[in-house]
Design a protein around this nucleic acid. Sequence first.
DNA 1: CTAGGGTTAG
Length: 653
Amino acid sequence: MVSLSRKLILPIIRPPLVIRQPTKFRQEKTPFIPFSRLQQIKQLESQLTHTLDSCTSLTKVKQAHGYIIRKGLCQCSYIIAKLLRVLAKINVPMHAYGVLVFSQVKHPNPFLYTALIRGLTIDGLFKESVLIYSSMRKDGVTPVSFPYTAMLKACSSQMNVHLGRQIHGESVKLGGFGLDMFVGNTLIDMYVKCGWLDCGRRVFDKMPHRDLISWTSLIVAYTKNGDMDSARELFDGLPVKDMVAWTAMVTGFVQNAKPREALDYFERMLRAGVETDEVTLVGVINACALLGTSKYANWVRDVAERSGYSPKDNVVVGSALIDMYSKCGSAESAYDVFKMMQEKNVYTYSSMIVGFAIHGCASSTLELFEEMVKKDVMPNHVTFVGVLTACSHAGLVEKGQHMFKIMEKSYGVKPSYDHYNCMVDLLGRTGRLEEALKLIRSMPIEPNASIWGALLGACRTYANPDVAEVAARHLFKLEPDGIGNYILLSNIYARAGRWEDVSKVRKLIREKRLRKNPAFSWVEGSKGVIHEFYAGDLTHPRSREIDQAMEDLVDRLKLKGHNPNLSCVLYDVSDEEKKRILINHSEKRALAYALLTTDDGLPIRIVKNLRICEDCHLFMCGTSQVTQRQIIVRDNMRFHHFHDGTCSCRNFW
DNA sequence: CTAGGGTTAG
């Protein structure tokens, strides 16, 4: 008891970063072998390594093994370990042939055990790895850290913290390297992957020597947890920052939807003279995709080209660029990138297919799908989300149903929640609400909140409070705190004129003390400066001018017969107050600012975090007519291209 | 051996 409590109150030690030293292994006692034979073996080993490396199929590996046996080296752990690593590399399952070859070695060394454990882990054969591990323990093999790291990784993939801890304990007892950098880093990673971040942190704090990898592991753990402040704190304390650490910060901000911070870190990284590679660039490209502005899109493409990563010969950068351009509102630029790419894989095709789909280019989507199949690129679940979405936007119900029916039979893609979602949307969009409900009830998997949400959304468009009530009942059970569901239901009741039900839902919202997310929009002003507008926030330095521009615009719209749609305001306030709330919606203020500051010929691109409301949608239509400016709004759902009084979404969104 | 990455609708 005493020693335990003393252990617990040990102060946290934070030794300085050390540059990694080459690991020292204990020398095993080897039998006497004449020098000439030793030289011969060495030569053979390097020759065999080379042969194994060039194996691309199981047959070739088997041939190589035959040769190894003939040369009398089938007992050599080094060579057999190499063989197992090659099997893993060419995706041959370990359990049949690999285990057989392994079992022929009488005294496997730790590296051979490690290779087998790793291979089994890749195949997801956890029990088998544990078995191999215990037989190694029984053999009393000279302890080195490799097999322990491999086992910790296996435990992490199985989320088995308990066994991981035990194995770590054994590594401490046996070899005393329980907190060396490899084992420690893997242990941190295991804790983090299993959601035990604080334990990971404790290991980090206890490690006597840490390298950049320890630091980066933990930084990434914090970013994945949404805790950018802790990540930043750790990162700031890092005396030497390399490309990977910087990239971890950049992508961390991207994953937490903070594109401007991501770009800020990227610039600091460049200023610090750190090199970038394709992984960094993908992070930066994604940041620009989040921003959704064309200027940054072109800028990052230029950066990529100049750093030697052109979409022409880099499939990862190319695919990321396609996704970015379509999210920045330009399916054309996305397709330009697509066309110039030499290598195209499933990511490339899927990105482009989804890109066409969200821009409403259904025929291009379907053509591209055919092309992909013809070129033997196997479509996956994401590809089908794109295809079904395209059918949905274009009202191609039969085509969509057909694709849904054949996706598993012809392409082996099992319909998932995402696909059912698309189908509910497809049916709901054309008003087939009962059919959609029937589909949901026939699902082999339990329908989740987003499925019922898709149905509820369709009920809003078709003002069907009866089906809406069914969907809402399930939704309130699955997501009791989802404010959006209550608002939707209330709007549906309102449109059906069921005001008593409206007030019932409003009361529910009040009782649950739910609050709407703050809405905001951003727009690119002159010189690529991005301006953010929050709903009702009048702190922009040019607020006065924006107000003036807004008044002018409202007057011009009134002349054309555009009136505010007061039913978009869910609060019980006077009509005047409703008008005031509507006119302060963030996208309207962003629009007024853009009209004020940008050139006439250019399209106005607005990005907003929530779904655009009906009143703003109408307002944008009207403005595109009276000003003859093209307006592109990206909301959290899709793109709206407003042109001369109409929207590309055909008023379904 | 251990750290950063590309496609998902409404």
